[in-house]
Each structure stands twice: as C-alpha cells, then as structure tokens.
Design a protein around this nucleic acid. Sequence first.
DNA 1: TAGATTGTTAATCGATTAACAATC
DNA 2: TAGATTGTTAATCGATTAACAATC
Lengths: 209, 209
Amino acid sequence: MNFKKVPLTAIRRLSIYARMLAGLEADGKQQVSSRDLGETASIPSTQVRKDLAYFGQFGKRGSGYSVKELGFRLRKILGIDRAWNVALVGAGNLGRALFSYPGFSKQGFRIVAVFDNSPGKVNKSWKGTRIQSIKELSKTVREKNISIGIVAVPASGAQEVADEMCKAGIKAVLNFAPKRLKVPTGCMQANVDLAIELENFSYYLSKLR
Amino acid sequence: MNFKKVPLTAIRRLSIYARMLAGLEADGKQQVSSRDLGETASIPSTQVRKDLAYFGQFGKRGSGYSVKELGFRLRKILGIDRAWNVALVGAGNLGRALFSYPGFSKQGFRIVAVFDNSPGKVNKSWKGTRIQSIKELSKTVREKNISIGIVAVPASGAQEVADEMCKAGIKAVLNFAPKRLKVPTGCMQANVDLAIELENFSYYLSKLR
DNA sequence: TAGATTGTTAATCGATTAACAATC
DNA sequence: TAGATTGTTAATCGATTAACAATC
C-alpha cells in the first residue's frame, strides 16, 4: 500500500492546504496553483505538488487546481468529510478548555463523552454532557462509536487512562500529559507536550546572548 | 557556530533526556548508559550519544554518564537552569487552563502577566495576577523582563497579538490559534495546532478500513 | 586484564528541492 | 500558438543508524 510511504509531515501539510482551500472557496476563488497554495505557508510549490502526488492527479497543467474539487478531495483523504466521535478523559482546567474549543467541532470532531475519576466531578454536566466515571469508558466507547481519545489528566494517571482507551477499542490517542505513552501497535498516539515546546524556546533564548 | 547545525529534533530529545534524568536522580540512581536513556522512549543508544555529542563529551567509556552531572549540563544547555518570564494573551478557557498548568511553573516558566481585550475580563484577577488590557503589553513586557509570549486568542486576532508581542521585544511566541503566524526573523514561533493533530488521526482512521 | 560503553566516522535512509518534459 | 503550470524523475540535502576504535 502507499499508506506506509506517505511521510507524516506530508499529511500535516495536507491539513494546511485543506484549510487554505476552505478559505479560498469562501472567498469565491475558482482556481489555485501549487505556487499560490504554498506561498503563505512558505512551502515550495514543488513540495505542494509532491504532497498531492502521493494521492493522485488533481490539477490541470497550465491552469492549476479547482479550489472546490481539490478541497473536496483533500477533505476526503484526510477523513474530515465525516464526523468523528471523541472521548475526553480529565475534567480539569485543560479538559474544560478542550471541551469548549471551537476548532474541534468545526472540523467534525465531536466530544461526545467526558470522563473523570474525582467523585466531586462525576455526574456533573457540561452543556448537557454528563461527566462519567472512568469505569464506564469501555461501555460508552462501544455504545457511542468513539474512535479518538483525549488524555487530559496529570502524568501520573495518563498511562492507565491510555490503557483503558486502547482496551476499549480506541485507535487514536491525543495525549496532553508530559509523558510518552505506551500504546499497542495499531493504535496511534500524538503528544502535545507543552513543556518541550517551551524548553525549545529557552534553548533558543539562551543562545541569543 | 554549532547553533545552526543542531537539528530541532535533537533539542526535543534533549528535553526528553533531561526529564528522564530528573526522574532517575529522584530515584537515587548514580549512573546511566545511553542505552538506558533511550530505551523507554524507543530512541536508539546511538542517537542518544549523537544528540549529546553536539554539545560536548559528558560520559565515561565503560560506565556511562553521571545522572547528576548530565542532568545539570542538559538543564544548562536547554536554558532551564533559570526562570523565564512569560506573557499570556487571551483569558478565555484555554488561557485559563494554560495559566493553571502545573508543568510550566515546574520548569521555571512563570506566567507573570495576563492580557485580554474584553472589558468584562480586564482588571479581574487570577490568583493575584491582574488581567491587563493588551494596550499595556509593551510596557509590561519591558518592566517585567518577559521573553516568551503565549497566544491563546481566536485565529482572527492572533496575528495582531503576535505583532504586538514581537514589537515589544518578545523573542519566542507559542501560538495556539489554528493559523501560522508571521513573525520577524530572530523571533521564534511554535504552533500547537490541535485541529491538525486530529486530522492526522482521521486520516489514519480512514485508512484503517 | 576483560567487559562495557563511549565518541565519532562512515553508510544508509528518507525527505526536500531542482529540473524538465508533458500538456492544458 | 505561446505561456503557464502540472506531474514526475533525478539530484541534493540532512538526519538516522551502523560500525568500531578508543578507553574507562
């Protein structure tokens, strides 16, 4: 399959193109060239064409790409032509922020279940979504056809939560705890490690002087 | 300088090693090998040694690295041997979560100022930190010696905030808005784009069937 | 010493960029 | 047609991994 051969970085750029195309479509633009697409993100046109070439031929020589058509195809490739159900574990400050984050629902990622362990939080509701005990995770994942999990608990509990998720059949885990998780092969994980981002900065800032 | 030649990915791994060393030190471990260091994060020992080699020779052939010594040196290299002052712009849900995020202060990143534009928020206080109008950004950055900025506002206002930050002398911008920012050369930016992470997932999930 | 592990050079791998024929 | 822009092959670049002499 071509699956394994597409670099992850290319997929990330595809997301950028898709977002840009949505904007162009809203502006009523009909055609766009690989040069235009790359320009605002400082991506060479040749990189844009290469990224697209992993998935097919979408353009017309001489005139570029149809904004509408390419947007449609990219959304399809990225799987954002449909909705995905998401489970959020951790109803603290971060969980709350993620729950209300407008960027998720806009792309069809729906947080349909929220979990926490603290007795003070369980059975409270956020905008009509009841906070459930983690014990209910497995059942709910099946019932609500959830395929993505977000870990927004402290580092100490993160691995346990991830284990539960994978056992319940979740195939992709977005982790905010500052700790790399072990997940079974076939389960995908992405880590948003805020401390590492800031440490990158402090490295750079230290070098400045 | 060796500055330009060190890959960014190597710096990120350095953060991982530093974190691991802190754990080992807490456990009372004295020595550690490159193999041990890489193991839990699935990084080959040869990669670990290569990463360290960008900055010097820290080990003893035959016995490995002193946990204490290497930890100290890495913290120094990463610039986390001292505190950094941070400005947070955007006092919404996300801003609130970042403000309370324990991982920041633990590493010496101190959010010493919070800004927002909404009249309903300005002059309110979070744990003793007054929310200021963005108009005060420049002045406060100078007064409080702030070198890092966090953008936690919606996409529509993000560029404007980043401009203000860079003009005020901030040299590193962590951006949570789903939008790549333009910053002057010499200013560093990192983007935490949650939508792109999830779109990666949906790509992967779509391919699974 | 013998065993272990470093630091570094060389080989490999993969991704980015350049070049250009194809063609709208 | 002439100008523009694609899709793709080849060249370049940079990072990862393997190998191994140095040495504790």
